[in-house]
Nucleic acid binder design. Structure first.
Length: 572
DNA sequence: TATGAAACTTAGCACTCTCTAA
DNA sequence: TTAGAGAGTGCTAAGTTTCATA
């Protein structure tokens, strides 16, 4: 193929492991149409004899060899010795060093995304109509540079020219271009921990803090205006109520050629279900096509209003707030406070919630318990903001593993109690039969399987150690140990297997450990209790967290800009 | 007031790096 | 010592807001 066509084919082939893209019919269709366009322009493909092969149908293309090639390269890179990897990284760092920082008002500042986005397939989220289209290579001729009047304009690559070099003192961007798929503007800006970004972040939180002074009045006003005679006012009050109470986004209008998602102002008839007396069910796709689903109770007047806004002849597809736009809403909000817009409510409510939870938090308990407390608070904020992630494919398996681990420790506790009885049968009367019984939820066949896995683990451990020692002997030029040695060493595992068998048969466990006493065993059981508690806490944390994304709220909800997040998490 | 361009923040996903428990 | 998990980072899509113009 012509290199241009091959580049597109390569882009598709290299992402075969991303099923949700590659198996999406829209993605396939868009990719194929862009691929064919270039194929038509460049004369399709040639076979080994130089005969032209016309590529027309997606179904007849096999991209697997491309994927295999890319995958092999990935694996080779991964398998490289650490030293070699380090050397390559160091080389790359040297090349990149001049682009990492810039001088801004006489101060050295870190640049964020200094690399131009490389060509590739557009990964639009949700049901984006353009997902899979080929994002073209950006040439210097498309790039505008923004730089100080007296500074030297960086040289474009050999044989090229910049689109323009300008000196905009107000803008914070360093370079800009337009992408070919949606015509969106792309900017090179400073990093999040730079002065400019830090300042603007600081201002954002100050603005949210300022809202605290006005929130009572705003709430009082919208409560009153919920009953306004003027429909536009009533809609506006209802919208502000939803934004304030449920952290909805503003919800600008979207075009036909974008994913069909909504926010507050763009909510449609079918996104809101009313259940008397005053329950509202929201179900819609928000930013990033993340589902927003919530059943909430609202003020009676809000319920009444939504009923009015949904009244016939409105039907599916019609807007609930037909007399309201985001700019109208924001204009109204700016009357309370300069710069007040819908998004400030999200920052305000998230920060307010976090602050309250941190104050309520008890600073007692073990470290894992404290971490869980913090994560719980973080999670509450993330849930408020509907920050979600897709549940990891391995989640169920991980949870099962964790449960197995806990049960393994509980089983070991049971064994220790039996050992106690072996050395001191009188304990049965003192502690009662219940103390020595195996928990009901631990089934006999689980025990058998668990024992087998313990034996197996022991075997692999011994074998691995043996192999490693042999390797070492060989590199030292000595004779390796014989297989007989391994067999002898494996006897430990065989003994273990026999022991379990005997235990299963007799229901008794021989004493283990040097100089066993009841007290020693009690100590061991107690230690296991702590470990079980820790594991249980972790497992709960994990389960509750499976579809909540904590990262964003960690950054955006705290009253400190992200450049100080490191310090704060240290304190927490 | 509507519309589109421009400029910025917010956000999830897929990596890599680092730390921890076994 | 090492595998695996969790944290951190890079990337870039997808929002919001502001500004200019008709």
């Amino acid at each position: 193929m012509d290199p241009q066509a091959e580049e597109i084919a390569h882009a598709f082939g290299s992402m075969l492991n991303s099923a949700h893209n590659v198996e999406n019919p829209t993605f396939q269709k868009n990719f194929m149409s862009d691929f064919k366009e270039v194929l038509n322009k460049t004369g399709h493909a040639k076979d080994r004899d130089g005969k032209t092969v016309k590529i027309t149908s997606f179904e007849k293309c096999d991209f697997q060899p491309i994927f295999n090639h890319v995958d092999a390269e990935r694996a080779a890179k991964k398998a490289m010795p650490a030293a070699e990897k380090k050397a390559i990284k160091a080389e790359k760092d040297v090349v990149e060093a001049p682009f990492m920082y810039c001088m801004w008002d006489g101060r050295k500042q870190k640049v964020g995304n200094f690399r131009v986005e490389p060509p590739g397939l557009f990964r639009g989220r949700g049901e984006h109509p353009k997902t899979g289209r080929f994002k073209k290579r950006v040439t210097p001729e498309q790039i505008t540079i923004n730089i100080g009047k007296d500074a030297m304009v960086p040289k474009p690559p050999e044989g090229h020219k910049w689109k323009e070099a300008k000196h905009d003192q107000e803008g914070t961007w360093l370079a800009m271009w337009q992408e070919n798929i949606n015509g969106n503007y792309k900017y090179v800006m400073l990093a999040a921990n730079s002065d400019v970004k830090g300042q603007s972040d600081f201002k954002k939180f100050e603005k949210a803090r300022e809202l605290k002074k006005h929130i009572d009045k705003i709430r009082k006003d919208y409560q009153r205006e919920l009953k306004s005679e003027v429909m536009a006012e009533r809609q506006r009050a209802t919208a502000v109520y939803l934004i304030d109470q449920f952290a909805l986004r503003a919800g600008n209008e979207k075009g036909e050629d974008e994913a069909d998602t909504v926010g507050c102002c763009s909510l449609k008839f079918e996104h809101v279900t009313l259940r008397p007396p005053n329950t509202v069910i929201f179900d819609f796709l928000g930013k990033d096509s993340i589902r927003f689903y919530d059943e909430v109770t609202v003020d009676n007047q809000v319920f009444k209003n939504l009923k009015i806004f949904k009244r016939s002849p409105k039907k599916d597809g019609d807007e609930i707030f037909d007399r309201l736009t985001t700019s109208g809403l924001n204009k109204h909000l700016s009357n309370y406070m300069t710069g007040l817009t819908a998004k400030v409510f999200r920052t305000y409510n998230a920060s307010y919630t976090m602050s309250r939870l941190l104050q309520e938090m008890k600073s007692t308990g073990t470290i894992p318990e404290k971490v869980k407390d913090y994560n719980d608070a973080n999670r509450e904020v993330a849930i408020l903001c509907n920050h979600k992630r897709t549940v990891a494919a391995s989640h169920a398996q991980t949870m099962e593993k964790m449960e197995d681990k806990i049960n393994g420790m509980r089983y070991q506790q049971w064994r220790i109690r039996q050992m106690m009885l072996t050395i001191e049968p009188k304990e049965k009367k003192r502690k009662g039969a219940d103390y020595f019984a195996l928990a009901e939820d631990i089934a006999q066949d689980w025990v058998i399987a668990h024992q087998a896995s313990l034996v197996e683990a022991e075997r692999t451990k011994i074998t691995k150690k043996f192999e490693k020692e042999n390797e070492k002997l060989e590199t030292e030029g000595q004779k390796p140990m014989k297989d007989k040695e391994l067999k002898e060493r494996l006897e430990v595992a065989d003994e273990m297997e026999k022991k379990f068998k005997k235990e299963n048969k007799t229901g008794k466990v021989d004493a283990e450990g040097k100089g066993p006493t009841v007290e020693k065993y009690e100590g061991q059981i107690e230690k296991l209790d702590t470990r079980i508690a820790t594991a249980k806490t972790q497992s709960e944390d994990r389960e509750n967290n499976k579809e909540v994304a904590l990262g964003t709220s960690k950054i955006v909800s705290l009253l400190l800009p992200p450049c100080r997040l490191g310090q704060l998490t240290d304190i927490v």
